[in-house]
């Protein structure tokens, strides 16, 4: 048998065998159902992966914001830089990538002057070790009882001191720099101290890092009447040197 004959025979065999099969007909429903399930599973998996990636990114950024970039004294944990470019309160240039302050970097104190039913002044933030970092925007302030429970308060936004005092906008605002030589403040007003126990503290949550600075409330204003809400007014961070009255 010649090679050509072999190949022809093979071709004919394959052709004949293939054509011996009946037509396939329409797509079987079970197959289409399987295909739809598979597509759905793929889409679901994709969405789950995206959600996990988004959550991971969020968690990563949050963790980075709280993680030290360089080791501070006594195990201090500074936060990383987040690309904030901010001049110092005095207007002098600062490094273009200044990291954001975390609670560990800061010490807070209430500088409030009492009146009958309210206290007015500032919450001041200083660095608690030799570092430099930035604060931006308006923090979230809550009132925490000594037992750790949160006391219900009503919060309204307040203008910064510089605006109140008709001063020019500080250089670099709304970002403020906190360092050994510069503090940052928020304008603060507290009205009605009904039912606030001694030993309570303000919990000032920083926006980017998410961590909170605890500041003892100090003197508690008088009670304006049972049932009156406890209210606070909170301004944004601003340079603390000469802005307060």
């Amino acid at each position: 048998m010649s090679e050509m004959q072999d190949l022809d025979e093979l071709r004919e065999l394959l052709q004949g065998k293939a054509e011996s099969l009946p037509p396939a007909g329409p797509a079987p429903r079970p197959m289409l159902r399987r295909a739809r399930r598979r597509v759905a599973a793929t889409v679901t998996t994709g969405l789950l992966v995206l959600a996990a990636a988004a959550f991971g990114s969020y968690a990563g950024i949050t963790a980075l914001a709280d993680r030290p970039l360089r080791q501070g004294p006594a195990g201090r944990s500074p936060t990383p830089s987040v690309g904030v470019s901010a001049p110092s309160p005095s207007g002098s240039p600062v490094p273009p990538l200044l990291r954001v302050c975390a609670a560990d970097d800061l010490t807070g104190q209430a500088e409030l002057n009492g009146a009958a039913g309210s206290q007015v002044g500032s919450l001041r933030f200083l660095v608690s070790w030799d570092t430099q970092c930035s604060l931006t925007g308006r923090p979230t302030v809550s009132l925490v009882a000594p037992d750790g429970s949160t006391i219900s308060i009503q919060t309204t936004d307040a203008d910064p001191w510089w605006k109140m005092n008709a001063q020019p906008e500080p250089a670099g605002w709304p970002t403020t720099v906190v360092s050994k030589s510069a503090s940052s403040v928020i304008r603060f007003r507290w009205s009605n101290g009904c039912g606030v126990p001694q030993g309570s503290h303000w919990s000032v949550q920083l926006r980017i890092s998410g961590s909170s600075v605890a500041i003892p409330v100090g003197d508690i204003p008088g009670c304006n009447g049972p049932g009156s809400p406890i209210t606070i007014e909170v301004g944004p961070f601003e340079p603390g040197s000469d802005a307060t009255p």
């Binding site: 797509a27 079987p28 079970p30 197959m31 399987r34 295909a35 739809r36 598979r38 597509v39 793929t42």
Partner: peptide, 9 residues
């Protein structure tokens, strides 16, 4: 059929 299911996605 398996091949079509695989290719569906």
């Amino acid at each position: 059929q398996d091949a079509f299911v695989k290719l569906a996605r």
